[in-house]
Design a protein around this nucleic acid. Sequence first.
DNA 1: TTGTAGGCGTTATCAA
DNA 2: TTGATAACGCCTACAA
Lengths: 342, 342
Amino acid sequence: MSRTKKNQESTILDIAAALQLSPATISRALNNNPNVTPATRKKVTEMAGQLGYRRNNMALGLRNNKTHTIGLIVPRISMFFHAEAITMMQNALYEKGYNLIISQSNDSPEMERRLVDTMYSSRVDALIVSCTLDTQDFSHFDVFADNDIPLIFYDRVPPAFDGALIIRGDDFQGGYLAGTHLAETGCKRIAHISGPLTTNLYRDRSAGFFKALKAAGLPVYEHLVFYQPLTYDNTRTALKKMFEHREKPDAVFTANDTAAIAVHEFARENGLEIPRQLKIVGYSNDPRCAIIRPAITSVEQFPGKMGSKVVEALMQMLAADRETALNEPITIPVQLIRRMST
Amino acid sequence: MSRTKKNQESTILDIAAALQLSPATISRALNNNPNVTPATRKKVTEMAGQLGYRRNNMALGLRNNKTHTIGLIVPRISMFFHAEAITMMQNALYEKGYNLIISQSNDSPEMERRLVDTMYSSRVDALIVSCTLDTQDFSHFDVFADNDIPLIFYDRVPPAFDGALIIRGDDFQGGYLAGTHLAETGCKRIAHISGPLTTNLYRDRSAGFFKALKAAGLPVYEHLVFYQPLTYDNTRTALKKMFEHREKPDAVFTANDTAAIAVHEFARENGLEIPRQLKIVGYSNDPRCAIIRPAITSVEQFPGKMGSKVVEALMQMLAADRETALNEPITIPVQLIRRMST
DNA sequence: TTGTAGGCGTTATCAA
DNA sequence: TTGATAACGCCTACAA
């Protein structure tokens, strides 16, 4: 590790002093302002390098009232869907000269509220959010709308929000595709394990699913439908109940992939052959669905596409002279990925 | 969405004006300075709420030369190991009043370099890094060391770095455990698919593995050892070569889990029964290892523990009056998780 | 207990 | 083309 000790924390004033120039000139030179001699610019850049100068973003932000930083709040970055979407957004934003501050709410509304506050305190130029499952009250986002700071919700979104753009997957269609597919493969008693209906994501997936059943002339069995947090354990409990019943299901549509995998394991443990005795369709197309055997059919949400769309819309919002804002919700298409489980 | 329009961007001056007080008093009241009447404090807090005041972190940072923000750079957040570690760090840091800025280098040294610069420009109070696989030159991190800003490397770390703390898993031990375990289960020709030896992570895992073989009196077969980027495709190619050879392996130790899963699929496709004909040990204990059947034995690195350790050390560094800095590298123990693949 | 004033690093405006 | 100056929002000696 041989390194030459640079001066600590040099500022444009240091460069100015070293070069017998005014700070203003240094600033101009560093910012490619045309009104500066090439010779001066050269001197300045060199000295900046020598002194190890790096622009102080806080001073810049304070002065310009722009941080070139976008805030992002997601439930958890470990979810495949979000990891993919984030990667896409971060890359796209970086290309445009923006930084991304990522934070996780851990699915806690309280944490989400604190994070929104922090993001505002940091004066991010815009905020991108995928809400907590339990976020019912969205008033903590008002600061952004009130101050005309671009606000975009994606995936887990509020039912409506004045002053924010909403981008979501076509959950209704996803549920419909799943239901239709299972009906077409000849299933008669299709179970449905969904999340809490307070989240419109799940509400829509379920609605699409039921519509498909109806279209196929299949009944909905009360005892085969569950609305509950889609944890592994909850799913197991639901399955146990179903299979203790006289009329057992011949297929299960779960509103996420964690639940689908729980069904998969349950089937294996109880000697149910997939797909002959039990078919499974999950949601999100998590990579685990492709690895498990037999592989699980799932609804692809194209997280990357959603990420691109978010950034694209964001750029428009940032460029727009207020009031031009686009506010129509955007829907991203989904696709059923068929695998061995059906 | 009924919301009462708050004043735009109010500052302590606005509060001061509204209350006929000086900005200084407002500042003190808001910061719980004891020298302020309870009555005044109450008035101030109320007015702050009414005006929708939020402290401007940039002004604060500029003034105090502290941002209470920690930077983090990882190859990709989607890697299970990092997702876990990050979650732990973020929660721990948030408790301590710090924010975490996360960004991904996408395993590109160029991107890493740019991110380090950005982090410095944002004047983060400290930087936490897990390097790119290809980072050979670590000079871009010098800014932090030169300016006495706490710098911590974890997991993928430089061989040594003056002025930075290094925290890593016990890779040598991990490799040793894997080798010993396979030897104990009676394997005679153990293949090894490792990453490029330019990364000391892989160098150590391999070294530990070879030491175990030696201790067990087993030979190392040249044609069964590969050093290459651990992608799915590379691994398949390596396997193909191995199995075209006369002396086929009866076990494979891969230096990560993606490769282990590739081996698993290869075995299945070629009718090799796991574990009877081929045993597999991976590295990192990715959740996929537990889901696949037969489940794959892997080396657990305790990402959460590493995350906690990082934050713990960081807090000490931030509190320390320079020079007291702890610089001894820290090693986190590993553990072999035995599953059906062995 | 409260007020005054200066400065953190940068850039925009105006003047030279 | 360059320089002087003020201002962004906040905090903290120091003074009252």
